[in-house]
Design a protein around this nucleic acid. Structure first.
Lengths: 271, 271
DNA sequence: ACGGTTGTATCGATCATCAATACTCATGCA
DNA sequence: TGCATGAGTATTGATGATCGATACAACCGT
């Protein structure tokens, strides 16, 4: 089950902590089922019929029926406006609001990011470390950017993003290597670096310089510098990204100009 | 139970549709419990102990224990970094990403909003209609703005926001009145209009002008114009807001300048 | 050492949930 | 018109996952 793999990941020790022992008997299968249903939309972001829900969540049609009814009542699913099928519900946004509001890092980061964006005039993001992926939590756009590429909640592979590399640079080699080994090193663009040795070299540079950068590794035409926000024991919590366009900047100018700002902002949030 | 009231609301016919009959027997109580736990953080956005979770979700401590364990495994809760208690988990953001991505309105709105923000230089928001509240889905900040006031997922009362009034103006009087009647007409600032007759007058104006505006009714110093995005049968789906500061603009200048832009953007998204 | 928290673990009874199946209602095709 | 398909809905009794009480452990400040 792919979903199972999904949270076996979570047992891994992303912070070198003891593996979480979860007593099977304390795990509520029926509760989990609801989330499997919601997660089905991650794979197919469109209205799903009952049968598709059942298939996507790997549950019986009967179970899907009841879960869907329940989630409709609660507002976490809505009937598709097209008449057939269901889609994720607005109520989900309330929960993400709670998440953002509960997270002290994000609360502290918001004014700093806004200031930073004002100073830079470029896109500014806060990403959170989450093992082999990073998760964008706050995104302040600048110019025209495409689609949902800039939605918060988006995940990107740690190895191929500036923020991810900046965070890997905070970890010891063993842990960073562990993440690289478990990462699917698939290129996102023709310029994505997928050779572990080269990635390690970039991480080493980031460790030396205090920031990381990528050129067109996640999106063509884009350059990003990023600095890690660390908590105690130098564990990475997140990263500040500043992203610009190669149409506007040379790589060297961009790095020279924005890297210090990213580092400063990240430092203000660290500790 | 306040939570119960929460979704009895959803039985109401926000779109004049037949009341949803929900067979009690199809409602999964144990599934709902998990969401009650997550919803507890809406009331107290801070780490909650097991006992607090139990109290907040109105379930027994044992049930809370099992739900919490389950949600920890799934990533929808995380142990608080402070050591004690749990907080909402990063995985929630994945679901909000799915929501945003599944919603065609939001997908279509993103480039238009970005363009609009570039043109205006002021804050631009997309809100969604949800009965007595509106829900901010996309927020493109401009200047320095405070705190989480500008997070997406935030809800505001329909009656006191420009977008809310623009959407009420799309409804027939009976329905709009129904919403006003069920709204808690509590002032958000000293300048919030809470007199239903006055609100109706403003709605009437909005109907005439094709947009609504509020001055300092939600936040002192702020002026907002908004136009409704409608779907078929003129039902409001959401609204485009443009928000500026009274420090920068006179009310009249702001309206004259930005109302047409909001209307145009809303029209482009409607239908 | 204490009373107060935390979070964790165990247990058998019971009632909510299970899967299977049959139903109604649209829609599409011939 | 009629049949086939896939949509969502409804009903059932058996079963076993989940219930709540309670006990335990680990920590805190006094």
């Amino acid at each position: 089950m792919s979903t199972q793999q999904g949270f076996e990941r979570r047992y891994q020790a992303p912070e070198r902590e003891p593996i979480i022992e979860v007593d099977e008997r304390l795990f509520l299968k029926s509760a989990a089922r609801s989330f499997y249903v919601l997660e089905a939309f991650a794979r197919s972001p469109r209205p799903l019929s009952l049968a598709e829900v059942a298939k996507g969540a790997k549950i019986s049609k009967s179970a899907a029926q009841r879960v869907v009814q329940t989630l409709l009542v609660l507002g976490y699913l809505e009937r598709s406006p097209t008449g057939t099928g269901v889609v994720p519900g607005r109520r989900i946004l309330d929960r993400s609001f709670d998440y953002l509001r509960s997270n002290p890092l994000i609360e502290r980061a918001t004014p700093i990011l806004t200031e930073l964006r004002k100073t830079c005039g470029e896109r500014v993001d806060l990403s959170l470390f989450d093992d082999v992926t990073i998760l964008y939590a706050i995104r302040l756009q600048s110019k025209r950017e495409t689609f949902y590429a800039t939605l918060s909640g988006r995940r990107m592979p740690t190895f191929a993003t500036a923020g991810g590399r900046a965070m890997l640079a905070c970890l010891d080699d063993r842990h960073a290597d562990d993440i690289l080994r478990r990462s699917k090193l698939a290129p996102l663009t023709p310029k994505t670096i997928v050779d572990p040795a080269l990635i390690r070299q970039r991480i080493e540079e980031a460790r030396r310089d205090g920031y990381a950068y990528v050129q067109e590794e996640a999106l063509m035409g884009e350059i990003v510098v990023a600095a890690a926000v660390v908590k105690e024991r130098n564990m990475p919590a997140g990263a500040i990204h500043i992203a610009g366009s190669l149409a506007d900047w040379s790589v060297e100018d961009f790095r020279k100009r924005f890297a210090p700002l990213a580092i400063e902002a990240a430092r203000a949030l660290s500790g």
